[in-house]
Every structure is written in structure tokens, then in C-alpha cells.
């Protein structure tokens, strides 16, 4: 049966979680590995590390981090940020990432998607798309949302899947940080354009938002960052609420604790 994954996302700069969290139970809440273990115990289904380190010279910090995570965290780990070549992907996968997430580099060189998929399989290629409503359609943005590409969302999603993306992570820039909920219309555009699993991202502020995201056909992952990091909801809160709303999840009673 198709069910839905709850996925916390950690923004990481120089090996540390951006916007330090305030979980008193953790020895070091700024350590991505500690936090990922914490979410695993709470019942998170996957975890995403997004490396936002500006300088590309610090890849060794990230690699050491992923190696440590792979030794201690036993749920799937997706790593995004700064992956520009097959060699970058290989290094991250070898270090212990299960999937790599491509964004700007794939827009500049779409063949990167097929090259990575051919070598490692479609299951480890996540195409991350940032989009924004133009008034008549959704436009894809690159460079962390700073640059408009002129590419329409649905067509990029279709191309991405055809090239070998095994999953699409859609972030609505209109909703990100607003707590107004996922962008259902943008998710539907991607849903209509693809047959691979979709992860919804950007805008969660209330428990109902998770349910609304899960109701879009094809959305099998619900990603959030700040509501988890700031303790607005626990993973368990979200899963119980989804179950209560008849959305299939891996139940919390059997997960982790």
C-alpha cells in the first residue's frame, strides 16, 4: 500500500545545523548527526541534509559528517547542496549517503541527472525543484531561489523524470517560511507531469498542512524543517495526526521507541 513519509530537513553550514535548535535532551543540538538520531528515534522515515556552505572548499567537513551519520543513523539519508558532477555524487554515496539531491547543477547540465542515474540507479537521484508562481504558471528558479530560469515547472519535472530522477522534491518559494501550508497547486502540476514519488516542501505551519500535502496524488513525502527544529511539533505529533486523518504512515508505536 502507498503511504507517506515524514522527513525532517536539516540545513547545514560548515558542518553545523543552521538555526541551532533548543532540544534540551540533546548534548549538542547543533550537531546534525545528534539531531538526525533524535529524529530517527522519534519515528522520522528519512532525513535530508542540505549543505548550504557557501565555499566549495569545505567538502571534507561535509564528508566527515556524512560518514559519521552513516555509522550512527539507520534510516535513509539524502544529501543535497553543491553536487556538480558524477564524482561529487560518488564521493557522497561512498561516504554513506543513500540519495543525492540535485538542483542548480541539473538545470545547468541536465545530463548530470542521467549520468548519475546510469551509474548508481534512479533510486538515488532526487531532483530538487524550487518554483514560484508568476501569475499564470510556475517558474523554476536556480541558485537557491535567486535566479529565474524561464523554465515551466511541469515541463522540468517531466524532463527530470525522463532523464532518470527517481524522486522529485518540490519547494514552493511563495510558501517557504510563510507557515501558510504546502503549495497544493504546484504539487498538482508536478503530480500530473510525473510518475515518480514526490516530496512536498515549503510552508508547513500547522498539522493540517501535512494532511493537505498528503492528499495530492503522488505526494509520498512530507518535508519540514523549522516546525521540527523549533519543537512546534514532534515527528510523533505529525504521524499521529496523519493517522487520525486516515493518511497511511509507518505508525509511531512501532517506529523508534
Amino acid at each position: 500500500m502507498q503511504n507517506v513519509r515524514v522527513i525532517p530537513c536539516l540545513d547545514i553550514d560548515e558542518g553545523r545545523v543552521v538555526k541551532g535548535t533548543n532540544f534540551l535532551s540533546l548534548r549538542d543540538a547543533g550537531d546534525p548527526v545528534e539531531l538526525a538520531k533524535f529524529y530517527d528515534e522519534q519515528g522520522a522515515d528519512e532525513v535530508v541534509f542540505l549543505d548550504i556552505t557557501a565555499s566549495s572548499g569545505n567538502r571534507s567537513t561535509v564528508l566527515a559528517l556524512i560518514e559519521r551519520a552513516a555509522n550512527e543513523v539507520f534510516i535513509p539519508l539524502t544529501v543535497g547542496g553543491g553536487i556538480r558532477s558524477v564524482a561529487d555524487a560518488r564521493t557522497l554515496l561512498r561516504a554513506g549517503a543513500d540519495k543525492v539531491s540535485l538542483n542548480t547543477a541539473a538545470l545547468g547540465n541536465p545530463r548530470l541527472i542521467s549520468d548519475i542515474a546510469q551509474e548508481f540507479g534512479v533510486q538515488c537521484v532526487v531532483l530538487a525543484i524550487d518554483c514560484k508562481w508568476t501569475g499564470s504558471s510556475y517558474e523554476v528558479y536556480s541558485h537557491g531561489g535567486r535566479r529565474a530560469t524561464g523554465i515551466e515547472l511541469g515541463s522540468w519535472a517531466t524532463i527530470g523524470e525522463r532523464l532518470g530522477a527517481g524522486e522529485i522534491l518540490l519547494t514552493s518559494m511563495d510558501r517557504d517560511g510563510t507557515k501558510a501550508g504546502y503549495d497544493g497547486l504546484a504539487l498538482e502540476v508536478v503530480s500530473d507531469a510525473t510518475t515518480v514519488p514526490i516530496i512536498a516542501s515549503g510552508g508547513v505551519g500547522e498539522l493540517d498542512h501535512f494532511v493537505l500535502g498528503a492528499m495530492v496524488e503522488g505526494v509520498t513525502g512530507l518535508l519540514a524543517a523549522s516546525v521540527f527544529h523549533f519543537g512546534t511539533f514532534t515527528i510523533a505529533d505529525v504521524k499521529r495526526y496523519l493517522e487520525f486523518s486516515d493518511v497511511q504512515v509507518r505508525p509511531i508505536s512501532l517506529a523508534g521507541n
Partner: peptide
């Protein structure tokens, strides 16, 4: 077999 289900099957299952 696809139907309306997303492939890859990428999730927890029983």
C-alpha cells in the same frame, strides 16, 4: 505494476 502508484516503490512498508 504501476496503476496510480508511484514507482520506484520508495517508502516504508509492512
Amino acid at each position: 505494476e504501476q496503476g496510480t502508484l508511484r514507482v520506484p516503490h520508495m517508502q516504508w512498508n509492512q
